[in-house]
Design a binder for these strands. Structure first.
Lengths: 225, 225
DNA sequence: CTTCAACTACTAAAATTCTCATAGTTTTAA
DNA sequence: TTAAAACTATGAGAATTTTAGTAGTTGAAG
């Protein structure tokens, strides 16, 4: 099982290489997109892992060019939070999976395993949550409403994700604290309200129909009216 | 099974009451230490849960007075981070367990269960990690070196705890990142080094013998020399 | 219909966490 | 022995998370 890893940051590259080799994969490495393209054309890899931001040829272009050359090798793309613009543009570049840095190594391994299983790659659809024009991509961590990208912090993302998974259900502040913060009830402070406020500013403020609603004395719901 | 809950913050009090009642405990409540004392004297509770900071009579004094009156009811004391001074002073007030706020409700329940099991309460010793004058109380989250209290943030505490549990072992930065941050390797940044630096300032700087050592190219160790 | 108490919204600031740039140190290799 | 490369220390600041206080709403009771 031979894997190509493309990454311009030496430390990250070697960490990935070492980790994969410890798991008995054969690993080739490339520091930039141009070399990666050469290697990928010449060899028949089982998987290509590539960063987005690179000198020479970025991950999207690499991915697209390989696909255009008829190379079907699964591609796992590594992204960093904050490369949002690029990410949105590159969704259709031909990559099979995205993994947002920083990540656990075990998670990378899991993806490598599933992507190298024959036939399974095409079955993997990007995991997203949707509700009324609001869309969360759980792989890339990109959130959009009506196509417009919304930047969320880690905590805001987790909160919104929980509300999305329970859309239409009224969630008490204790419930939110338990599930989003892993906190029972401190309730010396009003952090849930503060974060609801943050979310509203980002998700509802510039739109006509509001999605986050207060149920007095009960909690908050994500719903249409 | 009857439990007395003492807490001056109404929201917290009612949240605890409700949670316990849902788990089929009978709950009495008191808003301050004086009423709590009266109730505890009159009734034979299976457990008393009390906050430290309260009007009238604080948790420590309450605890001590009850013990002096011959009342052996197990006491679970709730503390908030930052009440360090008090906590250190109150270790021997007679409380059986400490729980630092904020906490998960399931954790409170677990403690309630174990404290209400006959005979088990005396077996519960405070869980602490020790190494060369350095002491971490995992219940109260109080850290001391040679008796001197050291204030740590949550992240610093987790890092030190991990190093204490692996004292003498060289821990690589990847290993620390995995276990303390749940991060595989991002390594675009040097956050581990930064936090080692924070810890050193608090734990080693004002002491002659240093406990945190760098092993060049390998990582960090907690050891004597 | 008022008034009160409980609850929620919002603003500002404090604390913590994380990032980045620079300087210093150690090892390796010529 | 010296220079380069790799690694580590440290300070400063940006971003995020959390706390705290005040103002504004809502629902209920009289």
């Amino acid at each position: 099982m031979r894997i190509l890893v493309v990454e311009d940051e030496p430390k990250t590259l070697h960490a990935i290489q070492q980790g994969l080799e410890e798991n008995l994969y054969e690993v080739d490495i490339a520091y930039d997109g141009l070399i990666a393209r050469q290697l990928a054309m010449r060899n028949n890899y089982s998987l290509i892992i590539t960063d987005i931001i690179m000198p020479g040829l970025n991950g999207f272009v690499l991915s697209r060019e390989l696909r255009e050359s008829g190379i079907q090798t699964p591609i796992l793309m590594l992204t960093a939070l904050g490369e949002t613009e690029d990410k949105v543009n590159g969704f259709d570049s031909g990559a099979d999976q995205y993994l947002v840095k920083p990540f656990q190594f075990v998670e990378l391994l899991a993806r490598v395993r599933s992507l190298t299983k024959r036939g399974s790659s095409t079955l993997m659809t990007h995991q997203t949550l949707k509700f009324e024009g609001l869309e969360m991509n759980l792989d890339t961590k990109v959130v959009t409403r009506d196509g417009q990208v919304i930047e969320l912090t880690a905590r805001e993302f987790t909160l919104l994700e929980y509300m999305m998974r329970n859309q239409g259900r009224v969630l008490s502040k204790v419930q939110l604290a338990e599930n989003v913060w892993d906190i029972g009830f401190d309730t010396g402070t009003n952090f849930v309200e503060v974060y609801i406020n943050y979310l509203r500013k980002k998700i509802d403020k510039n739109f006509d129909t509001k999605l986050i609603h207060t149920v007095f004395g009960m909690g908050y719901v994500l719903k249409k009216e």
